[in-house]
Amino acid sequence: MNENWLKKIDWLILPLIGAMVCIGLWHAVAGKKTYVLKTPASGLEEMHAGLVQALPNGEEVWKKVKPLVAEGKTEQVKSFANGTKIWEAVEPFVEEKRVGLIAALPNVGEAWQSSKPYIAEPFAKRGELDQGILRFTWLSLILVAKGYTLALLIGTPIGFFLGLSKSFTKMTDPIIQVLRPVSPLAWLPLGMVLFLGAGKNASELAALFTIAICAMWPTVLNTAVGVRAIPQDYLNVAKVLKLSRWKTLTKVMIPATLPYMFTGFRLSLGIAWLVIVAAEMLTGRPGVGGFLWQEYNALIYEHIILCILTIGIVGFALDRLMSVVERRFKTA
């Protein structure tokens, strides 16, 4: 009974444990702010030599007292005169210091404190690169949507041609295989060059170009595989009924390929979301990626973590969404 109950909610407990362990590890290696009490110690070490170690000699006393007198800190001079030890007269100061295995890495608390305003007011706009996190996400999503649509519009027909024609496959396969592994970081500069003439829109067009060309390959390849996998029986039905080419395409081939196409669409969306961050970093466009890069340059490391988590969660949500759509189109 008890075990049953545990088994029932282990879908919740186990991931929670995993997340806790991960956060714990992060926290363990992260740096902490500490305050160290310091005195301008350089001279003090020397003072400790002598018969009566604690007693400063005259020269030293004068060295310490002179600036105090000059600054008019007569109180302290007085207290010194009254028999207080000399080093108490020298004001200790507090120094902020980060300690920890990776001192620069912000810890959980810091990350949360620093990110709170961005999460609490997700749609605030304080400046071009200082906006609420959801506002940034929205900007990124719009760009992704545009680039992704472009990728699908270009990729699906290419995939269909690849699936239908052996000669076209042979012709374009080397090109595809060569272009496919090229990183978005490599495409972006080319995009910039291509759209040099566009002026103000150059960065957006370059980003769209990069997203489209990087994200379209899974769609192209999956559609091609899907078209090749259309059962001969379905095509025979079309032949026997003498369906026109257009009707064969819309009534038989596209529906038969849809499951494959949607697998491609899903993978493409994942890549599009990966590329957006790189594109925004390089172009400095406002968005999650741009924000991340900006905050790195501004030494606000807490926001890097906020951005990473946001990118991850949005990517996950997009993938889930696509898998739901994909399932809807699964036939047979």
């Binding site: 029986d233 025979n236 039905v237 026997v240 003498k242 009534k251 529906p255 038969a256 849809l258 036939t331």
Partner: peptide, 17 residues
């Protein structure tokens, strides 16, 4: 092939969608 010859295939060949 043409619709003057109706065929019933061994594996039904119905369009699943």
């Amino acid at each position: 092939p043409g619709p003057d010859r109706g065929i019933v295939f061994q594996n039904y060949s119905l369009l699943p969608w």
